[in-house]
Design a protein around this nucleic acid. Structure first.
Lengths: 114, 114
DNA sequence: ATGATATTTCAGCATTCATTGAAATATCGA
DNA sequence: TCGATATTTCAATGAATGCTGAAATATCAT
């Protein structure tokens, strides 16, 4: 990851609502969740939400896909891992001191038992 | 670490010059380095530098101490580790997936051989 | 096609941010 | 004390940010 990307990702996460949004998506897993659900969960105006999604997407932290009339947003775990890697790689003047932090959710969740 | 602190730390790092400054301090180790040395290394105006140091300090990412007429700034590794912890703790919906990333530089470096 | 649902686009506004220049403060050496 | 060095403070300015409201677009059900 280049410094520019790191700054973009950090800036994207450095805002109350966006950090909430991202954490929600991270917890939702790789399948993501529709914009409306996020709006409901965090009580945000839909246009405000679009604005923040855009910033997260530009930073490569989330992806979108359309599903019917819903837009499904999902966290991009690889980008988050790259950011963690970038932050730790400059640690301790090159001496290996930090294990690379990573988050590898299961690709697809088999149906959750009720 | 509370969300507020995380946002503050992320915002502090989400800027070109400050990310450079912080990385430089991280590489300098816990003993830190004088403001002037940072200014020289990154070619920044001294007042601009003070502005950024302030932001980093408010976010708890650096500390200062006076030494003669120099102000020695040092990275606060614990705060950085707390931030990494915060980012990974919300990973994977609570499932343990990421080892806590940490950076623990030696407290004091014994004289470096020439 | 029509109306309803889901989301985005656009214009505007107050706030915050990063930088600059000039002046102030603190410490050291002679 | 005087001058030099190191850093901070203050005021000003242009740019970016986050939010709001109104209108546009896309999809679905009938």
């Amino acid at each position: 990851m280049k410094k520019t990307d790191a700054v973009a990702a950090l800036a994207a996460l450095a805002q109350d609502n966006r950090l909430d949004i991202f954490r929600l998506l991270v917890q939702a897993g790789p399948e993501g969740m529709p914009a409306g659900a996020v709006a409901g969960a965090l009580d945000l105006a839909p246009n405000t939400l679009t604005f923040h999604f855009d910033r997260l997407r530009t930073a490569g932290l989330v992806s979108v896909r359309r599903e019917g009339r819903s837009m499904i947003y999902a966290a991009q775990f690889e980008q988050m891992n790259a950011l963690l890697g970038f932050l730790t790689e400059n640690c301790c003047g090159g001496a290996p001191c930090a294990p690379a932090a990573e988050c590898k959710p299961a690709r697809k969740r088999t149906k959750i038992p009720a």
